[in-house]
Write a protein that binds this DNA or RNA. Structure first.
Lengths: 199, 199
DNA sequence: TAGAATAGAGAACAACCGGAGAACAAATCA
DNA sequence: TGATTTGTTCTCCGGTTGTTCTCTATTCTA
């Protein structure tokens, strides 16, 4: 169902309010947020959203505006942000969904990051490529993982774990491997797929 | 149905706008983008695109210009087979569909091939990777294309076309470029995306 | 060269969108 | 219970936006 601009505004505000308050707003409160002076005008939009299946029908109840729970999710897995060696993952403001081949999905929770930098270039992972990551807290030796170093820097590297140390290998002849103590490294996910767009 | 030049312009702009805004443009906004001063002129083109099945019919709705989402974007595009330099495309027995990110689709007809061999390794295209190809019979210099050589061998190479010759460059330091006469090379498609599965 | 196809300008029209405000009824609160 | 808040319904309005015309210019083709 297609929403008009104002309907979209109102839906966004309602969705936003969900996180901030435990009670739905009254019409008057919503009108104030929207800069309206007439409840009647708002009501028409609320009705349209209900018609569209985005709001539960509210039969006269006060504070009865409620979002429909299972708005059928679009297909795809979330694109979370960028990962660059030596920095935290840079989250993107608006969560977008990205369709990926089923072959890359493992049934576990997965997400997409965009790679910044050339540290994995010898593995054919270039600056600007997208990687599909399976959320996990452990990995096998030789896996390419998203690792959190000292709870602050996120990086994409090939990992080798030994009883007394953890080594992160970049795939770039001009960069050196880094050695850490096991406690300093936290695995956040394992590389499952690569996506690259040409112009 | 074949689009006129202006119709193609408009379609491209609409497709481009999809990524930048969450609401379709109004006629006036589109006119401004196109340098038109009359909504009536635009309307004729919109109608033609609707007729061609590329736009949803908009029954008087404001901001009602909406692209018809192709089945391909929902279900995936066909995986046709393997391509190895020096051999015809090896078709797969049963056609499978593969979901790919919308960003790789151009609205034109696309398909997926699996790459065999290392001839494009310096471009980060490895043996076993999947490539998304847009079906076309022409390309710009520097594009990576699926080219049919002498009507029998298919190959994935970077192309440079000159009036008197066509050069196919592999992206592998240990391989040499090949030079052909224009008539010997037939372009079958242009590289739009790359997919790689890890384990 | 005539005709068709493409492309645009501009005017007039109708529908849609968003809003105001009054009156009413139901829910909630004191 | 009575008063107040809150949701509902209704009519009305104006600007925006899509639609339909007619008219003109340019390009391509038979």
């Amino acid at each position: 169902m297609k929403l008009t601009r104002r309907q979209q505004d109102i839906y966004d505000i309602l969705r936003d309010n969900l996180d901030h308050f435990d009670q739905p707003p009254t019409y008057d409160e919503l009108c104030q947020l929207l800069g309206l002076s007439s409840r009647g005008s708002l009501h028409k939009h609320i009705q349209a959203l209900t018609q569209a299946g985005l709001l539960e029908p509210m039969e006269g109840l006060h504070r009865g505006i409620r979002l429909v729970e299972s708005v059928e999710a679009e297909e795809g897995i979330p694109f979370l942000g960028r990962i660059a060696a030596g920095r935290p993952i840079e989250a993107i403001s608006q969560a977008a969904l990205m369709k990926v081949p089923d072959e890359m999905l493992t049934g576990k929770s997965c997400y997409v990051l965009q790679v910044t930098g050339d540290s994995m270039i010898d593995e054919g992972i270039f600056d600007g490529d997208y990687v599909v990551i399976e959320q996990r807290d452990s990995a096998d030796n030789g896996d390419i993982v998203v690792a959190l170093v000292n709870n602050e820097e996120a990086t994409l590297k090939k990992i080798v774990q030994q009883p007394d140390k953890v080594i992160l290998y970049p795939a770039n002849a001009s960069m050196a491997a880094m050695v850490y103590k096991p406690g300093e490294i936290q695995i956040q996910g394992v590389l499952r797929g690569l996506l690259r767009c040409y112009l």
